[in-house]
């Protein structure tokens, strides 16, 4: 969404410009709204769990800035990955491969929003949170998108950190610092990301192969990926229960997270066990869909418990 439309002075024969075709909704699509919704939710939970208080308007500004920063990362990711988005069926309809927005427009949009969200968060909330947001955008765009994604099958393991930072930024918006509790929230998303994406990668293996992205199933094969999914699911289980073990979540969270983690491991075991045909694909889809529910439920339970505890304390 350029502020000033280009008025290039080129010869009249070639004075047809392919840019400027993006509608407002195309620019919204550049922000990856579905990813953004998870970022907003987890950042909000981080903000609500943090000790101390923040003015509600400033809290809303913090969430808005984190959301815009995440959206800006998405736009910059689409700018850089336009070539592979064009090849993959899952991403072929994104605004750049669909010819609605040019790469230059996406780059300008992403940079503008990145700077705007960081400065706004710094000025209005605190500069630690602003710097943390800047680091998250840097990590997602430079470390993950430009470096890891095309070079190592561990791309989403390390790159997953970018998606795990939002609750820490939400926490930092209130406290101006990080803590063990916020690190545990980070760790839950960090450990959750690999089995979540590898379950999808097993189903969409052909897409990633065509795009020459070294996802684990492409490089190491489906069997090794299944081993990894099960291992990460087993490691995730205690991390999912950790908020209760560390004493910042109550017994409701403790029991529910134990149950949810057991189901997660069970579904991962199912993926590990079923390796051929439609049943294998169905097992992967089940794990992928449940993983989204799992993460949502853990954070919703943390939020619910803290709200109830706050109400009881205030009564």
């Amino acid at each position: 969404m350029s502020l000033v439309e280009r008025q290039d002075t080129i010869s009249q024969d070639s004075a047809v410009w392919s840019g400027g075709m993006g509608s407002v909704s195309d620019y919204v699509a550049l922000l990856k709204p579905r990813v953004m919704s998870l970022v907003i939710f987890t950042a909000f939970v981080g903000l609500m769990l943090a000790p101390g208080s923040v003015h509600p308007v400033l809290g809303a500004v913090a969430i808005l800035c984190i959301a815009i920063g995440a959206g800006a990362s998405g736009a910059l990711n689409m700018w850089y990955d336009a070539d592979i988005d064009e090849v993959m069926t899952r991403t072929r309809k994104r605004p750049i491969p669909a010819g609605k927005i040019t790469r230059e427009e996406a780059l300008a949009f992403g940079i503008t929003l990145s700077i705007g969200s960081v400065v706004l968060l710094g000025l209005m909330v605190n500069w630690f949170a602003g710097a943390f947001l800047a680091f998250t955008i840097f990590f997602y765009v430079i470390v993950y998108t430009m470096w890891l994604k095309r070079s190592t099958p561990q791309n989403i393991v390390i790159g997953g950190a970018a998606g795990a930072f939002p609750p820490m930024i939400g926490w930092a918006a209130v406290t101006g610092s990080v803590s063990l509790e916020s690190f545990v929230l980070f760790l839950i998303i960090f450990m959750w990301t690999p089995p979540h994406f590898w379950a999808l990668a097993l189903v969409k293996n052909g897409d990633y192969t065509a795009a020459k992205i070294p996802m684990l199933p492409v490089v190491a094969g489906e069997t090794v990926t299944r081993h990894h999914i099960l291992a990460y699911a087993v490691l995730l289980a205690p991390v999912g229960v950790a908020p209760y073990l560390f004493g910042f979540a109550g017994p409701v969270y403790g029991s529910a997270s134990t149950l949810l983690s057991a189901v997660f491991v069970g579904l991962a075991f199912d993926v590990w066990r079923k390796r051929e045909g439609d049943v294998a694909k169905a097992a992967c889809w089940r794990l992928f869909k449940f993983s989204i529910f799992y993460l949502f439920m853990l954070f919703a339970l943390l939020l619910g418990e803290s709200l109830v505890a706050g109400l009881i304390a205030g009564a």
Binding site: A15, W17, V24
Partner: peptide, 24 residues
Amino acid sequence: DDNKGITLTEEQKKKRRSRSIAIA
């Protein structure tokens, strides 16, 4: 006349207007 720059199509003008409103 030799240097008229880009001529936007009607659709481009329409999209630009909607973007301008959003920016406002």
